[in-house]
Amino acid sequence: MFCVENCIKHVTSAPYRPQGNGDAENAVKAIKKAIKRALHEGADVTTAFNTFLFQYRNCEHATTGVSPAVALMRRRLRGRLDALRPDRAAGVRAAQERQVTSAGGTPRSVNVGDVVFARDYTLRGEKWSEGRVKAQTGPVSYKVDMGQGIEWRRHVDQIIPASKNRFSLTRASVCNPDEQLNTRVDIPDMDADEAFEDALDGEVQVAAPDQPLTAHLPASAGVLTPTVDAPAAPPPDASARALRAWNRAQRSS
Rank of each mutant, 00 (worst) to 15 (best):
V4G: 06
A83V: 12
R17P: 00
S13D: 01
Q250M: 11
D237Q: 13
G138A: 10
A71L: 14
P18K: 04
I150C: 06
V112P: 03
H10G: 00
D201A: 14
F196G: 13
Q205M: 02
V140E: 07
W152E: 08
S67N: 08
R57A: 00
A118W: 05
L181V: 08
D210G: 11
I150A: 08
H155R: 11
P188S: 05
P235S: 07
R153I: 14
L84D: 13
I31G: 02
A242W: 03
K134L: 12
G131P: 03
V228Y: 13
L169R: 13
T47Y: 03
A172C: 04
E5G: 04
V28N: 09
P68A: 00
V70G: 00
V28A: 07
E151L: 05
T183R: 11
N6W: 06
N58E: 11
C175N: 11
C59I: 09
P68E: 01
A245Q: 05
I187A: 02
I8N: 09
A195M: 12
D191Q: 07
K127T: 11
M73Y: 15
E41H: 12
P18V: 01
P18Q: 02
A43I: 02
V110Y: 10
Q99K: 11
R108T: 09
T63L: 03
E203P: 01
A215I: 15
R88T: 12
V28D: 00
S252A: 13
A62E: 11
K127E: 07
E151R: 02
P188V: 03
M146R: 15
A38K: 02
L39S: 01
P161Y: 02
G149T: 02
A215K: 14
G131I: 03
L53H: 00
D145Y: 01
S239W: 01
N165L: 03
E5K: 11
D237V: 13
A242V: 07
A195C: 08
A103G: 06
D186Q: 12
R153A: 07
D198E: 13
E151D: 06
A27V: 02
T170W: 09
E126V: 14
L217D: 05
D229M: 07
A249L: 11
Q205G: 01
D237G: 14
A95V: 12
P188Q: 04
E194W: 03
W246S: 07
K143L: 15
F54N: 04
L39W: 01
I8P: 10
A195N: 07
Y121M: 11
S109F: 14
V144Q: 04
A232S: 10
Q136R: 15
L72K: 09
F54K: 05
A221I: 02
R57Y: 00
A94I: 06
M73T: 11
G104Y: 08
R154T: 00
V110T: 13
F49P: 00
K29N: 11
R171M: 09
Q158N: 14
